[in-house]
């Protein structure tokens, strides 16, 4: 029913409950404040950093951040952290690829549809957790609350990794930061965050991030296991590495990404998550040097236009996802595949 309405509009679903009409109101007829030209400029700014850096930003940034916040609790209740790590990374990567490319968030586009499906997945999980004895609403808030979704969209997927990429040398302009703010505000709204909560500027987004960091107690029991599973069980797809090399490659890649995550979140938070302080941090100057080279080449006009670079980066990223056998993004019909232990 949801897919039919997303594809063909509500007229194609004559028996749609009124709740479906309400749910899809802003999706099918975007509010006036959404500027799609600005959203698309944000998408170009997002991807011009390059696919490899975005993978680093997604794992060592977005996911490591998200797994150390209250958003981790529903995931922790699923158990099977190691077995699920690769699939979760694949699903999230596929969704990010779909939702953040230029044009992806226009009415009827695939990124918008997939984002709305995930909004419904969150509501299904919330319904389940609300009925579970394992969820402590008084102390944890509502499962996948508006605040959690706001933090995920605006902080986890935006300000936090962008701060990390700027630390590595990516030279976002003020206009690009504002465009990406608008892009992630629209994504967050599609995920169910009311307009009143959304940042209207990059400065507001950073204020939300800084304030949330001061408000939230980041000690989440079990979050360290979730982060460990991400780095040491989720990053290297088994099918891409010959069996004899799997263990050393997994350790090398895991420690490298963990070192970046530790650097970005700082030692205090990293220690809470048992992210080790290793010699792998030596990779940071090398990454910075590579980023500097790319930034300089762009400034000197040695690279194709940003729009062309983004197309190439997206093609490569899609191909890598296919080669890695990354799971498609979660859909409402597949939530049963990830049972919640309660």
């Amino acid at each position: 029913m949801l897919d039919t309405a997303l594809r063909d509009g509500l007229d194609a679903v004559p028996d749609a409950p009124p709740a479906l009409t309400e749910f899809l109101e802003d999706t099918l007829t975007p509010p006036d404040w959404v500027d799609f030209e600005l959203v698309d400029r944000g998408a170009v700014a997002w991807w011009r950093a390059g696919g490899q850096l975005q993978l680093l930003a997604l794992t060592a940034g977005s996911l490591a951040y998200g797994y150390s916040t209250s958003f981790a609790r529903p995931l922790l209740l699923t158990g099977r952290l190691e077995q699920m790590a690769g699939r979760r990374l694949g699903e999230t990567s596929r969704w990010v690829l779909q939702a953040t490319r230029p044009g992806a968030l226009h009415p009827g586009a695939d990124g918008l549809k997939q984002t709305v499906r995930i909004r419904l997945v969150h509501a299904l999980v919330r319904r389940h957790l609300r009925g579970s004895d394992a969820w402590d609403t008084a102390n944890w808030g509502e499962p996948i609350s508006v605040g959690d979704t706001l933090a995920t969209g605006i902080i986890g997927f935006f300000t936090y990794p962008v701060a990390g990429l700027r630390d590595l040398g990516i030279d976002y302009s003020d206009d690009e930061l504002e465009a990406m703010t608008h892009q992630w505000a629209w994504i967050s709204h599609l995920m169910g965050v009311p307009h009143e909560y959304l940042p209207k500027s990059y400065a507001e987004a950073v204020e939300i991030a800084d304030t949330a960091a001061a408000v939230e107690d980041v000690r989440i029991e079990g979050a360290d296991r979730l982060v460990h599973a991400l780095f040491f069980h989720g990053l290297v797809p088994a099918r891409l590495v010959p069996k004899p090399l799997r263990r050393p490659v997994t350790a090398l890649v895991g420690h490298t990404f963990a070192a970046v995550a530790r650097h970005w979140m700082g030692p205090e938070r990293a220690d809470l998550l048992n992210i080790p302080d290793t010699r792998a941090k030596a990779v940071l100057p090398l990454v910075r040097a590579a980023v500097r080279l790319r930034v300089s080449a762009r400034r000197m006009g040695l690279l194709p236009s940003d729009a062309r670079m983004v197309r190439l980066e997206l093609q490569t990223a899609d191909r890598i996802m296919d080669l890695a056998g990354a799971a498609p993004p979660m859909t409402p019909g597949r939530t049963a595949e990830e049972p919640v232990a309660a």
Partner: peptide, 23 residues
């Protein structure tokens, strides 16, 4: 901003919740 953040963790996407109930 702090009050807004604190309030928001006790709010949910009510339209999505109503849709799940309707389904």
């Amino acid at each position: 901003v702090i009050d807004k953040i604190c309030r928001s963790v006790f709010e949910t996407d009510e339209a999505a919740d109503r849709l799940v109930d309707a389904f």
